[in-house]
Write a protein that binds this DNA or RNA. Structure first.
Lengths: 220, 220
DNA sequence: CGGCAAACGGACGGGGTGCTCCACTTAAGC
DNA sequence: GCTTAAGTGGAGCACCCCGTCCGTTTGCCG
């Protein structure tokens, strides 16, 4: 059971770090996870460092930019999101899969204030992060296609309407607290009902052009 | 026709100001109107002063708090909003009145980035501002009642859902530009369709408790 | 044990914002 | 005109945030 103690116990981004450095790295990630969840993505770096019990320099040495920290923190949340969509695709009922996927994604957004922002931000340098997101988007589009084919989702629904919904929920959730959860649930319920097929009203405006539907991270 | 030139030409908050002071006051209000519309309610005070061509001290002497400036700037926009609701009540078709009211309010929000924030913020000291808003809310509730009575608006719609919608549109509109307008229109179309009667789905979550549906201005 | 490089953390300069103080300017009444 | 007080604008202070520099500490290896 007892492996060689001298080899770094885990490989990854912190493969050949000194023991204390690796320890601090973990503490930073934990602190950042908490901070992003409760205070949003633009929490001061110093607050993260303080919560982690390290100096600011240590934080910046390990994660030169806020982006790199965000990518690292939300990597697994993103894969969790992707697997949620996968699970929804496994549902034999396309419409139920569609609705539960949306509801669960919104639940994630509600549980972690930074999640939606991280999800809607593009990090051109973080290739595997982008790959995971692209995968999730592709699977969601498939979910949409299936739900339309089954005749339960209106034909003029656009996969990009997911970010519309996420942004809308975000607007309802900015002032955290008791009301945020209820507001989010009610808004999602409203939107899901209008996503359902059977609406004859023309839904006038087409979705916005996509080239920047996720703002390029530099825009704040 | 020619009145006494020595009496201040307009009565109001700037009744007995010196001529130059009154002039500057107008310039400040104009600059603030522009700034709030394009950059939102939390534009730096210095930016407003610069745009108005006055010093910061002048701005602060005339409007001791940002709130007082906001109240003054959005007073007429608020009455315009209220009269929009009044017009909607005059429409013989309750449902059309309801939808056009919502669409026009959202158009105002789109045209002025600070409008929604001002509308959803409460200013306990500005009594007439609050009166106007209360009036608008009462009239909107009447609009809702009529639309329900006509059988076109779902029975479980709550007047407070208007702020839900405003916040949602706000979330979609934060990154201004081309896409914001289209996103807003599409979101409003979605929501209006789910507001329409005929939805049998239970709309699970009740609206959030109202005591603070408009955050008390001190919370930012 | 001893030395070295990695790691650390606080201090620091730079930029931005809110709000105030104060010496100067100017409109307004006699 | 001249006095006077209202009015003005910019300097200044306090605070917050970012990102870096540098003197000190400490893990690791021989």
């Amino acid at each position: 059971m007892q492996a060689d103690l001298r080899v770094p116990p885990q490989d990854g981004p912190d493969a050949d770090l000194r023991a204390d450095a690796r320890h601090n790295r973990e503490r930073i990630l934990g602190a950042a996870r908490e901070a992003f969840a409760t205070r949003g993505l633009d929490v001061p770096m110093a607050a993260i460092a303080r919560r982690a019990g390290v100096g600011v320099a240590t934080l910046y040495r390990r994660f030169p930019s806020r982006e790199s920290l965000v990518v690292e923190v939300f990597a697994d949340q993103l894969t969790a999101c992707a697997s949620t969509v996968d699970d929804a695709l496994a549902d034999p009922d396309p419409w139920r899969g569609f609705t539960t996927a949306i509801e669960e994604i919104c639940a994630m957004q509600l549980a972690d204030r930074g999640f939606a922002a991280a999800f809607m931000t593009t990090f051109p340098t973080a290739t595997d992060y982008e790959h995971t997101r692209a995968h999730a988007e592709r699977r969601f589009a498939e979910l949409v296609r299936r739900a339309k084919e089954a005749g339960r989702l209106r034909a003029d629904f656009d996969p990009a309407d997911l970010v519309l919904l996420l942004k809308a929920v975000c607007g309802v959730t900015v002032d955290a607290g008791e009301a945020a959860a209820a507001s989010s649930r009610r808004l999602v319920a409203y939107l899901l009902q209008s996503f359902e097929a059977g609406h004859t009203a023309p839904l006038p405006p087409p979705p916005p052009l996509d080239l920047g539907h996720l703002h390029p991270a530099a825009s704040h």
